[in-house]
Nucleic acid binder design. Structure first.
Lengths: 127, 127
DNA sequence: GCAAACCTACTCGGATAGGGAATGTCCGAGTGGCAATGG
DNA sequence: CCATTGCCACTCGGACATTCCCTATCCGAGTAGGTTTGC
């Protein structure tokens, strides 16, 4: 039970993009260098963030990635779900019974964590 | 990012053991039948719970497993950590810097979930 | 002693994660030809 | 007629997107043999 490293890279990348000046997009090479991973690998992660609508990409000369929308609204949960998906953290074997108390407890525990991640925005990191 | 099925089995098994009458230990065969897994597989899960001190085992004829200690004190977190271990849910790639703000946010989010799991006891399931 | 029950080590296939190389695809920007226009 | 200007098509290279591949690790399960204990 762990978050993948991709989530880690995604969070750091998003934090960088949000902190960067918004006029010029940032290339994947620069982002990859900063985190010590290959550009190809990071590109896959960035594509997920693009599909989730958190950033936008520009091809061609002077292209790159740029944060999208109101920066103040982007939460940790947005980034995590873009990478990990939105499936629940726990699956009960007794799924024929949606009333399983154990399942309910696990869901509410997960919800407590999600609330925290939803209320913490990436802009909170820089103050 | 998911809890393993073993955790699921462990929780259901613990709930059953706590609900069972405490006088006679329960055999692994009976527990396995109830959840539709092989006895040998469940045995490995039970061994982890024994090592964590949550249950105790009795060899020989009329042996089996039995909840240990005060049932009211056994929380969801106890069972989960017995199976999954206690390592953190998130590892920051920038671990050379323990001050990483992203890491701190993730830890506090995990702590919110742990609090919930720690405060919910298995006896709460039966009322 | 024997059978019931747990304990442990080993194996094994499949799924997933982490990572990289190569290739495909898109797009801005330079370039060059050509026509229109003004002197 | 000649030079300047403007326009259009084409190419080219930079940059993202995607596909394929390999490796390591973990999970879910099962087998086999050993050990303990009650009768």
């Amino acid at each position: 039970m762990k978050y993948s490293k991709a989530t880690n890279y995604a969070l750091h990348t998003m934090a960088f993009l949000i902190a960067a000046a918004p006029d010029r997009p940032v290339g994947v090479q620069q982002l990859a260098d900063k985190q010590g991973v290959s550009p190809t690998y990071l590109s896959k992660i960035l594509t997920k963030l693009v599909k989730a609508g958190l950033i936008e990409s520009a091809s061609g000369a002077n292209g790159g990635y740029r944060a999208r929308g109101r920066k103040e609204d982007i939460s940790f949960l947005d980034v995590i779900q873009a990478i990990e998906g939105t499936t629940s953290i726990f699956e009960c074997s007794h799924n024929e019974n949606p009333e399983c108390r154990i399942h309910q407890v696990m869901l509410s525990a997960e919800d407590a964590m999600d609330q925290h991640l939803r209320n913490t925005k990436l802009v909170d990191l820089m103050k």
